[in-house]
Amino acid sequence: MRAMWKGSIAFGLVNVPVKLYSATETHDVRLHQVHDEDGGRIRYQRKCEVCGEVVAYANIDKAYEEDGKTVVLRDDDLAALPVERSREIEVVQFVPSKQIDPIRLEKSYYLEPTGSALKAYTLLRRVLDETARTAIVRISIRQRQRLAVLRVHDDVLMVQTMLWDDEIRAAEFASLDEKPRIPAKELDLAKAIVDQLSGDFAPDEYQDDYQVQLRQLVEAKLEQGDAIDTAATFGEPAEEAEVLDLMEALQRSVERRKAGAAKGTKDSGSKRSKSA
């Protein structure tokens, strides 16, 4: 696997240098369109609806349309926006793992420790595993800041990007307002079917039959010679973050948290004395 970027996990004063890898890939057979008469590749042209001319990429701007009005965003406009280039996976909170609804999860990434980070990496992995906690983190991927979870997958730390709260649609269906009565006998029969089909999930026992048969079809046509000879016819990686002594970093993180809590208590006490 090829790393997407190198950065670090930051929690408290502990810094864990890591590499980020995409954890998934598609197995779909890639198809494109051709002319049925001669097998020529069908290409799509970027044509302007106003003048009808084919437009080069260099002359294309982005735009936003709302209520019949279009706002054109030039390259200069977009360049003025702050670009997120942080290489830090910032831990902002540790939450019970059961509080993370799977509907929020998107793409998954593996994290590999680099340099001398194995001990700190292992420590974080064990803490998450033994406390049944998931870390909520901020991470920048392809210049876009994302909210994500940092969790344990087997013996590997994994980051999974999440949808923002306003991206989750509410399931509001009038048909569900009715509460039909379910007879006990029907419920028992349904449970019996569940019992018959129950077992441990083994993902390697399942396959995408359509893609398997599609690939077999392609290979059979190649073997039969039913193919067109189209060939004849037609930045520097970021430097690893400095790793502090692990015990020292943990101790300083705890002391800083205690100092903050003590200061808050003292300030609230002073305010109560003045008001009295």
Rank of each mutant, 00 (worst) to 15 (best):
M1E: 10
M1G: 13
W5F: 02
G7A: 02
G12I: 05
N15K: 12
N15H: 05
P17A: 03
K19I: 01
S22C: 07
T24H: 07
T26V: 00
D28R: 07
D28L: 06
V29P: 03
D36C: 01
D36F: 01
E37I: 09
G39D: 11
I42M: 09
R46L: 07
K47I: 04
K47R: 15
C51M: 03
G52M: 06
V54T: 15
V54S: 14
V55Y: 09
A56C: 10
N59T: 10
I60T: 13
I60P: 06
A63P: 07
A63W: 05
Y64T: 06
E66R: 10
D67T: 07
T70N: 11
V71S: 11
V72T: 05
D77M: 13
L78G: 06
L78Q: 15
L81H: 15
E88R: 10
I89N: 06
E90C: 00
Q93H: 15
S97L: 13
P102S: 03
I103T: 09
R104I: 00
L105Q: 01
L105F: 00
E106I: 10
Y110S: 12
T114A: 08
G115Y: 02
K119E: 15
T122Q: 08
L123N: 10
R125W: 04
V127I: 12
V127E: 00
D129S: 15
D129P: 03
E130G: 08
E130Y: 06
T134A: 06
T134R: 04
I136F: 08
I139R: 01
S140Q: 07
R142K: 10
Q143W: 09
R146S: 09
L147K: 14
A148R: 06
V149C: 12
V149D: 05
D155H: 03
D155L: 13
D155N: 12
D155Y: 11
V156A: 09
M158Q: 13
W164N: 10
D166L: 13
D166P: 13
E167N: 13
E167Y: 14
A171L: 12
A171V: 03
L176N: 11
D177A: 11
R181F: 08
K185G: 02
A190Q: 13
A190W: 11
I193Y: 15
I193A: 12
D195I: 14
D195C: 14
L197V: 05
A202F: 01
P203N: 04
P203A: 02
D204T: 03
D204P: 00
Y206S: 04
D209F: 10
D209L: 04
Y210V: 02
Y210A: 08
Q211T: 11
V212W: 00
L214E: 07
R215N: 05
R215A: 07
V218Q: 01
V218R: 06
L222K: 01
Q224H: 06
D226C: 03
D229L: 01
A231S: 05
T233Q: 13
G235F: 06
A238N: 01
A241M: 07
V243F: 02
V243G: 04
V243Y: 00
D245A: 05
D245K: 14
D245P: 08
A249Q: 03
L250I: 14
S253Y: 01
S253D: 12
E255C: 05
K258S: 15
K263L: 12
G264Q: 15
D267H: 12
S268L: 13
S270R: 13
S270M: 05
S270Q: 01
S273D: 09
K274T: 09
